[in-house]
Nucleic acid binder design. Structure first.
Length: 967
DNA sequence: GAGTTTGAAACT
DNA sequence: CAGTTTCAAACTC
């Protein structure tokens, strides 16, 4: 796809116009081609496009300058352009996808036309240095002029690059995902910078941001006024690029970008820029300018090596592109630039905490989400305090930059950032390994941070939520200051969550929570007050709140909320006002203690914080679904099973019943009468499945039901928890249970993040079918809501499926099956796998979500399989996606649909008789890319070990379960 | 609201 | 691993 587009765009053009260009005429063309090729395979096209743009920008810019004025002054603008070049990618981001390429291409074309390509770059780099000084003098005006010129030029190219736009769109997304690093720190600045850069560099057409011109100018002017060097500007531009990407993605998907940008621009511009500038030396800046886009791409380099994550990949791609380009002219410079970029990244990371205070859309949230998916270990989270960026980078690198990440990026950063600012503490939330907390800097009150993250998640999950997010952003933007921001953010997030949940019945609870939280946050030490409150009063509150039961909280008296007895602690969330606990240590103030305790518990039982409800792995395979075997009994089951003796699994004493799931083989209950499904029935159904279509699954995954559970868990630990909520909603009408699950586990708990899949699955269960249509709908809505964020989990699932399909069975299977012991590992593995394997697919998927990307088609197929498998018979996930999923998700869903709707034969989807077959069938043109990704996956150091461990764990568990069943 | 029941979690 | 104790939620009155 990309290549053709490129070929089109490159087609000749008059040098004077510079709009059209001979892309390939110059060596740059070769690079570009290579880049595109890579991009196509990896779905990293956006990055490549960015790099290309940078190159083009530099060259054309220099040309333009040379032509325009003898004065080096022009160079300065070039420098700015170089910066802009850096920005140019953002421009692409800013204008979602579309025109960015065109401009860069045009710029590149111009350069190529000049025939100087590399030379120009070198010249530009020199010019950049000059320009740095000049810019301070008042280059701004020049830049504007240049921008105008560029606009003219770019416009033409843009027109030519209709296809390119599509590419760009994807790249943007990818960039966003990749940019996660810088995003945090840069987002704030990036908005303004991007706007400015866009104004200068990008054509007005490309830029979709309404205020960009004004804002960007303001920013530039402000920077100049402030006396900051061009470096700052460049840095800003870089950051802007990232931020713009993110913003663009968001905006494209949901229009949040505008608000978000506004917010960011309002809050952050100068401070973050200044910070960045401080870190960067002028030389570095110059270098960066010289490389412009390259630098942007290079940002990740540090992570690239170690990380195999998508970002790393994208970065690598960018790096590759850059490298050749630089090699053309300045290898040394390129290396330096890369260094500079890496430095910037680090610096940004450092700066990020501060920036976070500004409440830019949070990469933090994204990180949190990602972390939830990736399951960053607590140890990782520990380091949060000082270096959020590092953690992020690592987590990100480990984690795959999936669509989920993109979605995460979409999530407002305000929360995390603010929290970080206000609270120096490391992300406290990380209570659950599974949970997002780890990655996020939860400086804020633990509960609040958790709530925010959750809220963000929820908001992100649903399109409606997106709206709420936007609203929240607006609100945040409205509140300028950090402290207030935090509170507001929390409230907003809560509100958003509540909104999303409202459909789910938990609204009331959320509202109360929100209000309480608001008060608490506003008041400052509400927690203390709350703690001080008598348990009775608390209980009253709880009872009031718990009318819907969504808001229930713990009432621990002796455990100090540091044991699994405490629902809050078990859910990985901090205790909050609703809790009536006494002597509670499950609070942000005692984060260290909480983390330690968690570690201890996890050391004993790695799955202690894993979701208890698991979707049987057997559902995963499509064949089963097609057969319809699995549809009947609710697939979701309690991971460990209950041990009821007197309640007959008909009361909430029974965890299975409480989770609205049927009992399974794993249960040791006596006289089971579980309404959702008796243990006996479950065994029967399992046998049926195994006999009929289960063979496939059995061959690879598991023949035994328990194993299925384990596998599902292992594969997607997150899946487990989520499932329950849906069930709750559907069947009993146990709003309480539902609300509880939703409020706690689904929303607040990190587990919930992953739940999407389970939710989707849950509908299948007969119970759900039995449940009222209303309930079902609500469950779907819930699923939808969460699904958005859970896109991550979704992606994970997809990845897993892809892995099954693509990778040689043994390894992948091992990965997928990965022992339950380390869910976090699994998650990380999955995420990684996703990233790597999916770069193509996932990215595409993400791109698809955000914008249709050329790559998407391929991934969907795999995803479809995965989804199908996940969805099982009902395809609840599918439905969910269709219903309320954001466009992005819808896109993915769309991709998925064909698979489901269509016969297994569906276009590219091969009938999934066996996982192997699926894997083989799934690949299409993208396949190569996927394979590539897969290869990359193994390279991830953490993955393999994790996988191995998982595999062993799973097996052990399976054995245990089997033993139990035998017993 | 107090007390009882229940089963998971923790401990030995 | 099994048995016991502890704990907090669920439930009953």
């Amino acid at each position: 796809m990309d290549s053709p587009k490129l070929s089109e765009s490159p087609v000749p053009s008059s040098s004077a116009s510079a709009s059209t260009t001979t892309y390939f005429s110059s060596p740059i063309q070769l690079f570009s081609e290579l880049i595109f090729f890579k991009i196509q395979h990896f779905a990293i096209a956006p990055l490549l496009s960015l790099s290309l743009q940078i190159l083009a920008v530099n060259s054309p810019f220099s040309n333009y300058i040379s032509s325009l004025s003898p004065i080096k002054h022009d160079k300065a603008p070039h420098v700015t352009r170089g910066l802009l070049g850096l920005n140019s990618p953002p421009l692409v981001f800013t204008s979602p996808r579309i025109n960015t390429l065109g401009r860069p291409l045009s710029s590149s074309v111009e350069a190529s036309q000049n025939g100087e390509g590399d030379k120009q770059r070198t010249n530009e780099s020199c010019n950049l240095e000059r320009s740095v000084t000049e810019l301070q003098e008042g280059l701004v005006i020049d830049i504007k002029k240049e921008d105008d010129n560029w606009d003219n030029v770019s416009v033409q190219p843009s027109s030519s690059s209709g296809c390119v736009d599509e590419y760009l769109a994807d790249p943007v997304e990818v960039d966003c995902a990749n940019s996660a690093y810088a995003v945090n720190s840069n987002l704030k600045q990036s908005n303004n910078v991007l706007q400015s850069s866009v104004n200068g560099l990008v054509d007005s057409e490309n830029i979709k941001i309404g205020n960009k011109n004004n804002v960007g100018k303001k920013v530039d002017a402000a920077q100049l006024l402030s006396g900051q060097s061009e470096e700052n500007i460049e840095r800003k531009l870089i950051s802007e690029d990232k931020s713009l990407k993110i913003v663009n993605e968001q905006g494209a998907s949901q229009g949040l970008s505008d608000e978000f940008q506004k917010f960011e621009s309002d809050t952050f511009d100068l401070s973050s820029k200044e910070r960045e500038c401080k870190n960067l030396g002028p030389q570095k800046v110059v270098e960066d300018h010289g490389n412009g886009c390259n630098g942007f791409l290079h940002q990740p380099p540090g992570s690239q090596q170690g990380v195999q994550s998508f970002e790393g990949f994208a970065e690598n791609v960018g790096g590759d592109v850059d490298v050749p380009v630089h090699c053309m002219t300045h290898d040394l410079e390129a290396s330096e630039l890369q260094r500079g970029m890496s430095r910037r990244c680090l610096q940004f990371g450092e700066a990020q905490p501060e920036a976070r205070a500004n409440c830019s859309i949070s990469t933090n949230l994204a990180n949190n989400i990602i972390s939830t998916t990736s399951l960053v270990t607590t140890s990782e989270t520990e380091g949060l305090g000082s270096s959020h960026l590092d953690l992020r980078v690592t987590s990100r690198t480990r984690q795959l930059v999936n669509l989920s990440q993109l979605a995460i990026n979409m999530i407002p950063q305000c929360y995390g950032e603010k929290s970080s600012l206000t609270v120096p503490k490391p992300s406290g939330i990380g209570l659950h390994l599974n949970s997002i907390v780890n990655a996020i800097p939860m400086a804020q009150g633990g509960s609040a941070s958790l709530d925010l993250a959750q809220a963000i998640k929820s908001t992100c999950q649903s399109t409606e939520n997106m709206d709420s997010c936007s609203d929240a952003f607006e609100k945040v933007s409205a509140s300028p200051q950090d402290g207030t921001h935090e509170v507001k953010v929390c409230t907003i997030a809560d509100s958003a969550i509540s909104e999303s949940l409202s459909a789910m019945e938990s609204i009331e609870c959320n509202m109360t929570l929100n209000t309480k939280r608001k008060f608490s946050s506003e008041d400052g030490d509400s927690d203390e007050v709350f703690d001080q409150q008598s348990p009775k009063t608390k209980r009253k509150k709880l009872s009031n709140n718990t009318d819907g039961e969504g808001c229930k909280r713990c009432n621990c008296k002796k455990t100090k909320c540091l044991k699994l007895y405490c629902d809050c602690f078990a859910a990985g969330i901090y205790c909050a006002e609703p809790c009536s606990c006494q002597g509670c240590f499950n609070r942000p103030e005692y984060e260290d203690r909480v983390l330690e305790t968690r570690k201890q518990i996890e050391s004993r039982n790695p799955l202690a914080f894993a979701p208890k409800i698991v979707q049987p792995f057997t559902e995963f395979p499509l064949s089963i679904r097609e057969d319809g075997m699995r549809k009947t009994p609710s697939s979701a089951r309690h991971k460990r099973g209950c041990n009821c003796k007197r309640s007959m699994c008909l009361k909430k004493y029974c965890e299975c019943y409480q989770a609205n799931v049927g009992c399974s083989i794993g249960c040791r209950c006596e006289g089971c009468k579980n309404v959702y499904g008796k243990k006996e029935d479950y065994c029967v159904t399992e046998e049926m499945v195994n006999r009929s279509g289960g063979e496939r699954l059995e061959s690879r995954v598991t023949a035994k039901p328990k194993k299925d559970f384990l596998h599902s868990e292992l594969c997607d630990p997150h899946h487990l928890t989520p499932m329950t909520p849906s069930f709750n909603c559907s069947d009993h009408g146990n709003k309480a249970s539902i609300s509880r699950l939703l409020s706690r586990r689904c929303l607040p708990s990190p587990e919930s993040d992953l739940t999407i899949l389970s939710y989707a699955k849950s509908p299948r269960s007969p119970r759900t079918s039995d449940s009222n249509g209303m309930l079902l709908e609500t469950s779907k809505e819930k699923m939808d809501i969460e699904s958005y964020c859970e896109g991550i989990s979704y992606n994970n699932a997809v990845v897993l499926a892809d892995e099954f399909h693509h990778t040689p069975l043994p390894n992948q299977l091992s990965i997928v099956i990965g022992s339950s012991s380390s869910k976090a590992r699994e998650l990380t593995n999955h995420s990684r796998l996703q990233v790597d394997p999916r770069r193509g697919s996932l990215i595409s998927g993400s791109s698809l979500l955000w914008h249709s990307s050329p790559i998407t088609p391929m991934p969907p197929l795999d995803e479809n399989k995965n989804l199908q498998g996940l969805d099982s018979a009902d395809g609840g996930l599918y439905d969910i996606l269709e219903d309320d999923m954001p466009d992005i998700l819808k896109d993915t869903s769309m991709a998925i649909k064909p698979v489901k709707a269509g016969s297994p034969n569906g276009k590219r989807v091969s009938p999934p008789h066996n996982l192997h077959q699926l894997g083989s069938s799934s690949s299409g043109p993208l396949r190569s890319g996927r394979k590539f990704i897969l290869k990359a996956v193994p390279s991830f150091p953490p993955l393999t070990p994790c996988i191995d461990s998982k595999g062993s764990n799973t097996h052990s568990r399976n054995g245990l379960q089997e033993n139990r069943s035998n017993d």
